[in-house]
Design a protein around this nucleic acid. Structure first.
Length: 422
RNA sequence: GGUCAGGUGGCUGAGUGGUCGAAAGCGCCGGAUUCGAAAUCCGGUAUAGGGGUAACUCUAUCGCGGGUUCGAAUCCCGCCCUGACUGCCA
């Protein structure tokens, strides 16, 4: 949500920000509605003041037994009530229109985010490691996993359909080992390990920005719950509707959870293998920070995510998303793409975003900046990392000609000493 | 899941239809007193929003949302949460 006062004072800045995302100017509509709403609100409040005043006088009149005066005042109140009711209907509908519009508008990109229309214009800002050269044709992770008998899409499809997988034996353990190593690393960086709810109500999803615009991407239960598409939702919402003490910030959280996504808009994309599943595990990082801290915090989270790939010795690159590829709630985002030999390309394995106060406004999450000075926090989130895609990267980058997989050195302790799979 | 009892300001807690944004105490802030402090005394101390250059003023908020009423913290309905007992169950 946005600060209407700020929009009023500086509409051009908002329109310029939205224009960078390819949106038409929004503030004329917003300001027109805002003006109308304030006008109606003033009228309602005046009528309410008159009603309240007369009502109090009724009490006084009754107290001294002046029934006549009381009756006269009652008709006065009835008149005010008619006005309030009529204006109230108008106020509510105008308010809903404005709120729906505001809730559907994305965050304003940070000034230093590169302009661009699509992911093609993202800017590579770092590259780490050299893709290994194979003296055989590297296989895709799903071919490797199936050949090992440890990655079973067919059986999963029987019970759950496409975009599900069953990991077996050493590959299942590898999944756990990766998650454990990531959690150990991130808790070592000061992120508090958390086991949050995987089912949440609509309000938290509204808070982090998945609702109202992206409902079709979510799984909803038969009740009022949705399955979280990322632990960002649960972790970020731990501070909703609260006022945090300055000395608790930045507040860093991490969680290893399953994530559930309907992938409604991605039919036909990445249908093969484990790249795009309805259910996948992810170690998430969230930081709640002050506006002063958030840029540094953002870079720190990028570093923490990169550290995992460095420790696994997997080649990757870091790109800064251009305005056209920025997510709905983000004002600035770094993606980390890991090298996949079978595709001869880098694929996203982590996305680290600074949301500024965008989510905080929606959640009403503030911190105490001073006496009578409560301000919205900044929220940041990122994968540290997507476990399933990391497993994919390990399989493909560490495969041997005979189809076995060498376990990365750092992972061997987490694999109970196993050095080779298959 | 069921039954019962609750949910009031930073905290404790009073308030069961009117002048209640809400007593009192604690805490906190300012002042007096003091060499200084404690104690004591005096005053202040919620949030969001509207109007106004401002002084100031108005509206909303007593878990959340509806309703009854001229008027709701107080009555009614739904939901959420907490506690006790109880059922089923990993």
């Amino acid at each position: 949500m946005f600060d209407l006062k700020a929009i009023r004072e500086n509409p051009d800045a908002f329109d310029a920000g939205w224009a960078r995302r390819g949106l038409d100017p929004q503030t004329p509509t917003i300001l027109e509605k805002d003006k109308l709403i304030r006008k109606v609100k003033t009228m309602v409040q005046e009528a309410e003041a008159a009603r309240n005043k007369a009502s109090k006088q009724i009490g006084a009149a009754m107290g001294r037994g002046d029934k006549e005066e009381a009756e006269r005042l009652k008709t006065e109140v009835a008149g005010a009530k008619n006005v309030i009711a009529a204006l109230g209907v108008q106020l509510e509908s105008e308010d809903t229109i404005l709120n729906d519009l505001l809730a559907s508008l994305p965050n304003i990109p940070a000034d230093d985010v590169p302009n661009g229309a699509s992911e093609d214009e993202n800017v590579e800002i770092a590259k780490w490691g050299d893709p290994r050269s194979f003296d055989f044709d590297p296989k895709a992770h799903d071919d490797l996993g199936e050949a090992l008998g440890m990655m079973d899409f067919e059986t999963a499809a029987k019970m759950s359909g496409s975009r599900f997988v069953i990991l077996r034996g050493a590959l299942s353990r590898l999944d756990r080992a990766l998650a454990a190593m990531m959690l150990d690393m991130q808790t070592g960086e000061g992120f508090e390990e958390t086991s949050p709810p995987l089912l949440v109500w609509a309000d938290p999803l509204y808070g982090t920005g998945q609702l109202p615009k992206f409902e079709e991407d979510l799984y909803k239960t038969t009740g009022d719950h949705y399955l979280i598409p990322t632990a960002e939702v649960s972790l970020t919402n731990t501070v909703r509707e609260s006022i945090l003490d300055l000395d608790t910030l930045p507040h860093r959280l991490t969680a290893h959870t399953p994530c559930f996504r309907s992938e409604a808009g991605s039919a036909g994309r990445d249908t093969k293998g484990m790249i795009r599943q309805h259910q996948f595990n992810k170690v998430e990082l969230v930081s709640i920070a002050t506006p002063d801290q958030s840029d540094d915090e953002h870079k720190n989270m990028l570093r923490c995510a990169e550290a995992v790939l460095q420790r696994l010795e997997l080649p990757y690159r870091v790109v800064e998303l251009c305005t056209g590829d920025l997510g709905f709630g983000a004002r600035k985002t770094y993606d980390i793409d890991v090298w996949l030999p079978s595709q001869q390309t880098y694929r996203e394995i982590s996305s680290i975003s600074n949301c500024g106060d965008f989510q905080a406004r929606r959640m009403n999450a503030r911190y105490r900046a001073g006496e009578k000075d409560n301000r919205f926090v900044h929220t940041l989130n990122g994968s540290g990392l997507a476990v399933g895609r990391t497993l994919v990267a390990v399989l493909e980058n560490y495969q041997n000609e005979d189809g076995s997989i060498t376990v990365p050195t750092a992972l061997v302790p987490y694999m109970g000493g196993v050095e080779t799979i298959g």
